[in-house]
Amino acid sequence: MKNVYLHEDGKAVTIIDQTKLPTVTEYLTLGTAKDLYDAIFELKVRGAPAIGICAAFGMYVLAGTIETGDYDEFLKKFREYKDYLNSSRPTAVNLSWALNRMEQVVTSHSDASVPEILGYLKKECMDIQEEDSQMCRAISEYGLSLIKDGDGILTHCNAGPLATSRYGTALGPLFLGKEQGMNFHVFADETRPLLQGARLTSYELDQAGIDVTLICDNMASIVMKNGWIQACFVGCDRIAANGDAANKIGTSGVAILAKHYGIPFYVLGPSSTIDLDCATGDDIQIELRSPEEIKSKFYEKPMAPEGVKCYNPAFDVTDHTLIAGIVTEKGICRPPYTESLANMFGKNKK
């Protein structure tokens, strides 16, 4: 299914509302800056690559609403929209990456007319989606080389087609392997508090006919101890220059457990998630979200005292020393990541 796409008339972006899955498949039409902001902030569109694609499409849509033929006025309003969307979610670098690419199109065509600039913007946002599709395929191929038929794989959060444009990142090797006749048994963490693993990952894998078992987050240790896991595959929202990786809250705990049980832990993501300007994970801004996501969301009635304090970070950072490899569309980076990431992505990174 298409999870993010641009209307043929270029006046809106359509997304699947991921907050309604798996029980309801509902498409939303986003035509204003507030629509786009809310969809990203409220996780109606989520997954770092999908957020970037949505934002790129959104900037093209919003650019088309700017009523001026003057370049300077156009650029000023374009940057206002860009800054507004960029403030919706601070951790996933794909958001700012895609927005910066769209802005670069405008600034590099300062001698063009506004209608011409709109044409360039449309091509750029379509290119971003197509590139992600190609990157996911390549990531899937490299990731598949790390596992064998019959392996048990543990994953956390959701990094499948719903989070990207095709195949996914962490789940991509499993879908590709299934196409080639391979079989895996996947253990999907439910991923508290927003249940992306339960609602989305188990849904995607089940739909594809891949053997999947849903577990609570605090069950990861026992399935590892039982010898049922041969590798851990997770996605990422930002990778620092030293290999520290930000992903959905709970990921670092999985990595620590995997280290204890001698299980390789792999991070899979496109080059758009790699931020070589970010030295370490300590420099990654972690998004804090509403206490109600812990206390009452998905419950018929609140499951905690009304006045209790909550700490609800959306992400944590997995230390590079816990990561066996970072799988990208260009290949698999190995420690030391300060060298392998720089060698692979230090030059000509679009």
Rank of each mutant, 00 (worst) to 15 (best):
G160V: 03
Y84W: 00
G47C: 11
L30R: 00
R46N: 07
K11E: 15
W97T: 00
E8A: 13
E103K: 04
I53E: 00
S108Q: 13
P335I: 11
K259Q: 14
A112V: 02
I53N: 03
I222Y: 04
E287D: 14
Y60W: 03
A245Y: 05
I284V: 15
A220T: 07
A170P: 06
F233P: 02
L276Q: 10
A240P: 04
L144N: 10
E190N: 08
A220I: 02
L43K: 03
T273E: 01
T107V: 15
S340G: 08
K77C: 00
I147V: 15
D127M: 10
C157V: 05
T201V: 08
Q129A: 14
S290N: 14
A314W: 05
G160A: 06
A324H: 12
L75Q: 13
L214R: 04
I139E: 12
S221L: 08
G307H: 07
A258L: 10
G331T: 09
D151R: 03
S271D: 14
Q230M: 05
L30T: 02
L121E: 04
D316E: 09
S96M: 13
P193E: 09
Y261S: 08
L144T: 10
S145T: 10
V267E: 02
Q104F: 04
G119V: 05
T328E: 07
L6E: 01
M1A: 11
A56K: 01
I286K: 09
L21A: 09
D127G: 03
D38H: 02
F184E: 07
Y37H: 13
K11F: 03
V308E: 10
L36I: 00
E26Q: 13
H109T: 09
K297A: 14
L322R: 01
N312M: 10
A240S: 14
D277C: 09
H7Q: 09
Y5V: 05
D83Q: 13
T155H: 07
L146P: 09
F57Q: 00
G307V: 04
K301I: 07
A342F: 07
M303E: 07
C278H: 05
I326M: 10
K225C: 05
S290A: 14
D111S: 14
R89D: 01
M224K: 02
C278N: 12
P270E: 15
H260Q: 12
V105L: 08
I210H: 08
Y142I: 04
V223S: 10
K178A: 13
L95R: 02
K2R: 13
S296T: 14
D111R: 13
K11L: 12
T328L: 13
A245M: 10
D319L: 07
D83L: 12
C236Y: 01
F298Q: 11
F345G: 09
G227I: 03
D237S: 13
A342E: 12
S271F: 08
K148G: 04
A98V: 07
M182L: 15
I15Q: 01
V13M: 00
E293H: 06
K350V: 14
G119E: 05
P270G: 15
A138E: 15
D316I: 10
M135G: 01
P115Y: 06
D83F: 07
A255P: 06
I229W: 01
Y337Q: 12
Q230L: 04
S145N: 14
C333G: 05
I239G: 04
C125L: 06
T318W: 02
E73I: 05
C136H: 04
T68R: 13
V105R: 04
S272A: 15
V317Q: 01
L174H: 03
L194P: 00
E204Q: 10
G235P: 08
